[in-house]
């Protein structure tokens, strides 16, 4: 998915996914809101979690403060 570019910026798909996390959401919810394939959303959310831009609680994803700041 490559969610974060070489300068630390969000890629277009990462921005789409973070924007879609207006409330704690499952990968299926995010896929539905972004029209991205589910496999890409799962891979992307995992990468965003590794980059500490989202957290996962009870299988639902939420942006971290850092993730929100990159969206601004």
């Amino acid at each position: 998915m490559a969610c974060i570019g070489p300068q630390g910026e969000l890629t277009e798909s990462a921005r789409k996914m973070l924007t879609a996390l207006e409330s704690p959401s499952s990968p299926e919810d995010v896929a539905s809101r972004t029209s991205l394939p589910l496999f890409r959303v799962r891979a992307g959310l995992r990468e965003l979690a590794e980059g500490e831009l989202v957290t996962m609680i009870n299988s639902l994803y939420t942006p971290t403060d850092r993730g929100r700041s990159l969206l601004a």
Partner: peptide, 10 residues
């Protein structure tokens, strides 16, 4: 080409 992917993502 779309980043790291696991089979389980599908």
């Amino acid at each position: 080409t779309h980043g790291k992917i696991r089979l389980e993502d599908f």
